[in-house]
Design a protein around this nucleic acid. Structure first.
Lengths: 203, 203
DNA sequence: AACTGGGAAGACAGGTCTGTCTAGTCGTAT
DNA sequence: ATACGACTAGACAGACCTGTCTTCCCAGTT
């Protein structure tokens, strides 16, 4: 009965995902081999292939789990804010929290996608993640009443990605606060522009 | 005499770098093996190891060549602009040109660094590249008279990185124009702030 | 004509990789 | 008791990797 919850020991699937998360994230999906994962998880190799089918699909499951975690953390952070502007900028507060986690090593989807070959399930997982981020910014910008909410969302997505890159490559967690300040300036500029074009009929 | 220039055939070193540039950039430094490089270059494997010492150092040379190309293209583009503001934003014009090249596949330093292990010559090359970009933005912002030129440079660097990510992962070359528009807004906001704090003593 | 050095060609070592397969163990439900 | 499903343990195949080494070729120089 796999639906048993009070098991003393996590299931093979959970142990595999935990080991994959640790090793893949720290060292990269390409350099970490299957053997190390099954050894760290204390799981037979056959179980891995029974449960996931291939290494690519294990990587996909690892990315999807990271995606769910990030989503949860961002949504939890956003509940702390009330005004639309605060909620929009709150995404970068959540990002800053992720950056300061002790074993932070950049955006998992970005590094995994850089190692994946085109069309693999890995790239699909990265695409899903990007779509979620984009939709998040678009919705928040629209709720904030920004006229060109899609344009602002594209700009904020650039800052979000850039902060992830900088936090990893420059080892600088403050990239999130830099991004937040830039996002605030862009938001205010977009609101000003929207007001201006609304006040001045036909430009 | 290796300094001969009018050779009918490029030297082994040049052929190796050309093959490395093509294969490494298109498929990634990890997935492309030495054998494919020497075969494409028409060069003996021993020559590769005589000339470069190891695969990592060949990757480093490939990244340094890309760095030099990018630098040259950016500097050439910037000569077309006169005002400091135009020159600052011109970096994103140059970036947009790179994005529309037919075989564009993202920032080589970013993808290579994602596959490299810490401390390798690959990471050092990526660090050098990042330092150049940062210095470029810092100098241009200072020449434009921005009070907090370092802060603005950090913000623009985020946009620059984010545009590179988006152009690759979303297959969207217009990321450069989005970044340029955001950069313009941030620049103007920074100039306003600088003026304000200059006008309002100890404000 | 003899020498020399850069390069071509490729075998080889030693290791790692993914994925398959066999054989056996253990707990649980019937 | 017995059957079953989930799991473990590990050998194995076949391919690929980096890096070394030997052997040979050939153009240019002395």
């Amino acid at each position: 009965m796999p639906s048993k919850v009070n098991a003393s020991k996590p299931s093979a699937r959970e142990r595999l995902l935990a080991a994959a998360d640790d090793l893949f994230y720290r060292e990269g999906v390409q350099t970490v081999g299957i053997d190390r994962i099954v050894q760290k998880a204390g799981v037979a190799k056959a179980s891995l292939y029974n449960l996931f089918g291939s290494k690519d699909e294990l990587v996909q499951a690892y990315l999807d789990a990271r995606h769910a975690d990030t989503r949860e953390q961002v949504e939890r952070t956003l509940t702390r804010f009330r005004t639309p502007r605060e909620r929009l900028l709150g995404v970068f507060d959540a990002q800053g929290q992720l950056f300061t986690e002790p074993d932070f090593n950049g955006c998992a989807h970005m590094t995994a996608s850089a190692e994946a070959r085109p069309g693999s399930p890995i790239e699909c997982a990265a695409e899903r993640y990007r779509l979620w981020v984009r939709t998040l910014f678009t919705d928040l910008a629209r709720e904030a009443g920004v006229a060109d909410f899609e344009g602002l969302a594209r700009q904020l997505h650039l800052l979000y990605d850039g902060a992830g890159v900088s936090a990893r490559m420059d080892q600088d967690p403050s990239a999130a606060t830099t991004a937040r300040a830039a996002a605030a300036a862009l938001f205010d500029a977009a609101v000003r522009d929207g007001d201006a074009s609304a006040r001045i009929p036909r430009g």
